[in-house]
């Protein structure tokens, strides 16, 4: 995940890996109950309630099946980051590379998931699936950034699926298809952008006001939008030419999320939890 190999495909055998992070409440604090690495998914605790994904092998490569399970116990807080961007490469094995993240966030718990971008190298064939299951009053900040190929390179193919539910109700279901030239360059889809990113910010503070007539207006800027969802959350969304511009746009969009939070946010802990889990960098202006 760290050092982009120069060759078109790395030549290790494909792997199936399952890494696990679970938390538990210990005397009012969050303790990591389980932290199980499974190379190439290697996990390191780097702070209280903070875990970094560390790369110990190239890839994902074609044929890899990687699963990351995250279970944030009720009342606990977890932040997951990565030390570097992920470079998805074609492999010597046939088949797609597959990355699945299965995350549950319990009642009153909060999760911040903000890894570095995923770069789709030429020739890759990648699938990503996120299943994010939130309890009624769970909080989450979930960021995804995807880069269409290394510099000057056409990306391989990628399909992502993101499903977030709150107490079983659908909050956000999105798929992205990347790598079909007829669609990538469509002014309806990515236009001339080479990076796409989004951050789901959800929690009880964003529960839509029931008696409100009509939809709330989004906030938009150059290449970014802050979209209040029908359910309790907002989606920050951005398109950009490069990762620096993408991050900057996404952070601007994220910073508008609190505009849509209800006044009760301070009382129910959403603000506090989100601030506490943002680590050293406060991307979101809470």
């Amino acid at each position: 995940m760290t050092t982009p190999p120069s060759g078109p495909a790395a030549s290790r055998a494909s792997v199936t890996a399952r890494a696990v992070i679970t938390t538990e409440a210990a005397g009012g604090r969050t303790r990591l109950e389980t932290l199980r690495s499974d190379p190439p998914l290697t996990l390191r605790q780097t702070g209280p309630g903070l875990v970094h994904l560390v790369s110990t092998a190239a890839g994902p490569l074609g044929g890899d099946h990687l699963l990351l399970v995250i279970d944030v116990a009720p009342g606990t807080e977890l932040e997951v980051r990565s030390v570097a961007s992920t470079l998805v490469l074609p492999g010597s094995s046939p088949g797609d590379s597959v990355m699945v993240v299965d995350a549950r966030v319990g009642a009153g718990a909060s999760l911040r998931f903000s890894p570095e971008p995923t770069v789709l190298a030429a020739g890759c064939s990648h699938r990503m699936a996120v299943r994010l299951s939130l309890a009624e009053d769970a909080n989450v900040v979930w960021r995804e950034e995807i880069v269409f190929g290394r510099h000057g390179e056409r990306p391989g193919r990628c399909r992502t699926r993101f499903d977030a539910t709150v107490a079983g109700r659908p909050l956000l279901r999105q798929e992205l298809l990347i790598g079909d030239p007829a669609v990538d360059a469509s002014p309806a889809v990515y236009g001339d952008a080479r990076c796409v990113g989004s951050t789901l910010i959800a929690g009880p503070a964003w529960d839509a006001v029931r008696d409100q007539k009509g939809e709330r207006r989004a906030t938009i800027g150059d290449g970014w939008a802050t979209l209040p969802l029908a359910g309790p959350g907002v989606l920050a969304s951005a398109l950009a030419q490069d990762t620096v511009e993408l991050r900057s746009r996404l952070e601007r969009a994220e910073s508008m999320a609190d505009v849509y939070a209800g006044h009760m946010a301070g009382e129910n802990g959403a603000c506090r939890a989100a601030t506490d889990t943002s680590g050293g960098r406060r991307a979101v202006a809470w």
Binding site: D163, Q174, E175
Partner: peptide, 10 residues
């Protein structure tokens, strides 16, 4: 299917 088009949103 949930195919999204970020540009259409913008």
């Amino acid at each position: 299917p949930g195919h999204t088009a970020p540009a259409l949103d913008l």
